[in-house]
């Protein structure tokens, strides 16, 4: 979709995305990235339609993988993708890389596609730049994940995280998996200090490094209380090696177990709705500042309202937005 062409019709785009058409998926992701007003209107309709038609979205999993640079997240993602594909599950990946704060440019994608199957319709990778947004992910990531969710069995968001950045991805995924680098004490310190939000699954990669990996494993287990506090989910601490390929099946099992746990506790729907609400608030704040939020009754009120609001949140967003614009 380009300047010379009209924007795609969001209704048919939604249908094509749900049907898993790759060209439609690509064009939907481009649309969600597009900041022009007309594109944003189309995008809101697209998201609303996807949500409306995606009654089966509870069978899709939205997983975040994060951790410090060098922990082997990309290798682990690739290894997981292979396991999921063997299990017949389709996978969409959003891989987020840092971008240059000065030039705005970025180097992306230098990691995943080649490590996985080449001509596989069950895999789709979109790379994204942080685009300099302070404290984490760019605003496009979350809506893009919703498009992926409508098209694939598993949607995975991979982000580089040090310290507070993890908070962002855990604020939009059903299941957050933190990958720790053996021998680095950072993750443990962050956990203890409460900077690192406790993930649902903790992984120590590179178990082929031997003693140093085992030590990190036991330190992490010790730093972590046993419970996550979400319906009694006990946070597993796993040891894997993405390059050698050990422990990946177990990790895939554990991620699935967490999804089943959310379903069994009837937490999935509520959680996703909470994330949507948070995204809307974040976006409104980005556009109108704290003052704008105050005019709508303040963040807490807004979040509460949005959490119970039965209509599509995207439509709700447009309503709130125009309410502010007309003021």
């Amino acid at each position: 979709m380009t300047a010379g062409h009209p924007f795609p019709d969001p209704e048919s785009l939604a249908a094509d995305v749900t049907a898993g058409r790759r060209a439609a998926l690509a064009s939907a992701l481009n649309l969600l990235d597009d900041r022009r007003p007309e594109a944003r209107r189309c995008a809101s309709i697209l998201l609303a339609r996807l949500q409306g038609s995606a009654t089966g979205m509870e069978n899709s999993r939205l997983i975040g993988i994060t951790g410090p640079p060098g922990a082997g997240k990309s290798s682990l993602t690739a290894a997981l993708m292979r396991v999921w594909r063997q299990r017949g599950l389709s996978v969409g990946v959003l891989a987020v890389d840092p971008s240059s704060p000065i030039s705005g440019g970025a180097l992306l994608g230098d990691r995943l596609r080649m490590k996985t199957s080449h001509d596989d319709d069950g895999v789709f990778v979109r790379s994204l730049a942080c685009r300099g947004e302070f404290g984490g992910l760019s605003a496009e990531v979350w809506p893009m994940s919703q498009v992926m969710l409508a098209a694939f069995d598993i949607t995975l968001i991979e982000t580089v995280g040090v310290g507070q950045r993890e908070v962002d991805v855990s604020g939009m995924c059903d299941t957050t998996c933190f990958v720790a680098q053996p021998g680095s004490g950072d993750s443990i310190q962050f956990l203890k200090a409460g900077i690192l939000e406790v993930p649902h699954v903790l992984v120590v990669n590179k178990e082929d490094m031997g003693a140093v990996a085992r030590r990190t494993l036991s330190e992490l287990s010790a730093a972590l209380g046993r419970e996550h506090g979400e319906g009694g989910w006990e946070v597993p601490v796993l040891s894997v090696s993405a390059t050698v390929g050990t422990g990946i099946e177990v990790l895939a099992d554990v991620l699935e177990a967490h999804h089943q746990h959310l379903l069994a506790m009837d937490m999935l729907r509520e959680r996703r709705r909470g994330y949507q609400a948070a995204w809307i608030v974040k976006r409104l704040r980005g556009e109108f500042g704290s003052h704008g939020l105050e005019q709508l009754g303040g963040e807490q009120v807004l979040l509460r309202e949005l959490a119970v609001e039965p209509t599509s949140l995207y439509e709700q967003y447009e309503v709130l937005r125009s309410r502010l614009l007309s003021k």
């Binding site: 971008s99 240059s100 030039s103 705005g104 440019g105 970025a106 180097l107 992306l108 994608g109 230098d110 990691r111 596609r113 080649m114 790379s127 730049a129």
Partner: peptide, 13 residues
């Protein structure tokens, strides 16, 4: 150079 010029570059080797 593309990155320095502000493009988002996808390069996979």
């Amino acid at each position: 150079k593309g990155r320095d010029a502000g493009f988002e570059i996808v390069y996979e080797g």
